[in-house]
Simulated assay, not measured.
Amino acid sequence: MKKDLLKLLDLTREDITKILDVADQMKYNQKHGLPHDCLKGKTLAMIFEKNSTRTRVSFEVGVYQMGGHALFLSGKESQIGRGEPIADTARVLSRYCDGIMIRTYAQAEVEELAKYATIPVINGLTDFAHPCQVLADLMTVREKMTRLEGLKLCFIGDGNNMANSLIVGGLKCGMDVSVACPEGYDPDPRVLDFAKSVTDAKFTLCRDPEEAIADADVVITDVWASMGQEEAQKRRMAFEGVYQVNDTLMKLAHPGAMVQHCLPAHRGEEITAEVFEAHADEIFEEAENRLHAQKAVLSLLMGEN
């Protein structure tokens, strides 16, 4: 049966743990020069309707390191950007390639692509979810903290795709999750419904960052206006002066708390330069782990496992 990675809501805790375990092995193999060419002779089609640095580079490098080939398809330069139905694109690419990664706007587009494709489809980012990034985040936290279960994860900022996926991924791994965002910028209702159903971890949604960050082991933030979102000035007014990870706020977190940011970071807005640089090693380890976590996903979906 074909397997996909469309959103973390589709995965079990065991699925996530398996991906993280394989990611750890992928990282070990690369660091020690051990062969891991399970994609030899295979091709990944990469559709980009949103611009990217980390997603494109990490997927392209990862496929190469695993012996395969990644093919970049710009939404503006391919037929999908000129009105070809998603269903037709899915069926064509399924006859050429062994997997599809798409970075786009609507989650429904990814779901439809997967419906008609006969090869695995990976969500590289939508407005609803960012599963690959959060898998890298969880990998990084587990590396530093040696566990996930029982930790408290705090997200401060817009209830965007990052917040959605962090809530789901964190709760599924047994982490308590707290989110602080302005009124009108809450996470997706589908995610909040899921959070209500969780019984073995605690979820809190509040307006006060001080309440959310209290005793947090992991503090995560993201830009106030995600790519493609308008009304930047309106958003600045809603977030500025309150929803910023700074030294004062970090004093309320658990001693030794780590900070994560999916990048790019707007220093002086959602995070101060001082906090960013104090936790830069953790943040750029998180960025590196995009490579290893995605290689794990590619291996499990496209490799010989």
Results as ranks from 00 to 15, higher is better:
196 K>L: 06
271 I>M: 08
218 V>P: 05
223 V>K: 00
279 H>D: 10
262 C>M: 09
214 A>V: 02
192 L>T: 12
176 D>F: 04
216 A>R: 02
256 G>K: 11
170 G>I: 04
173 C>K: 04
268 G>Q: 09
278 A>C: 04
195 A>S: 14
238 A>T: 04
220 I>M: 11
228 G>K: 09
259 V>W: 01
244 Q>R: 13
203 F>I: 05
253 A>T: 02
200 D>L: 02
215 D>H: 14
248 T>I: 10
237 M>C: 02
181 C>A: 08
226 S>G: 01
198 V>D: 13
198 V>F: 12
229 Q>A: 15
225 A>T: 15
184 G>D: 04
216 A>W: 00
175 M>C: 03
219 V>Y: 05
264 P>F: 00
230 E>S: 15
254 H>A: 15
204 T>G: 07
221 T>L: 02
213 I>W: 01
253 A>S: 12
248 T>C: 01
211 E>V: 15
176 D>T: 10
265 A>T: 05
259 V>F: 05
204 T>P: 04
276 F>S: 04
194 F>N: 05
198 V>R: 08
181 C>N: 01
262 C>K: 06
267 R>D: 06
214 A>W: 00
275 V>D: 01
259 V>I: 12
191 V>I: 14
189 P>C: 09
238 A>S: 13
212 A>C: 09
202 K>M: 08
216 A>F: 01
225 A>P: 00
235 R>H: 11
199 T>C: 07
209 P>K: 02
232 A>D: 14
265 A>V: 08
276 F>H: 04
195 A>T: 10
223 V>H: 05
216 A>H: 03
262 C>D: 09
197 S>K: 13
211 E>G: 02
278 A>Y: 04
184 G>V: 11
249 L>A: 00
277 E>M: 08
186 D>A: 14
228 G>P: 06
271 I>C: 04
262 C>I: 10
188 D>Y: 03
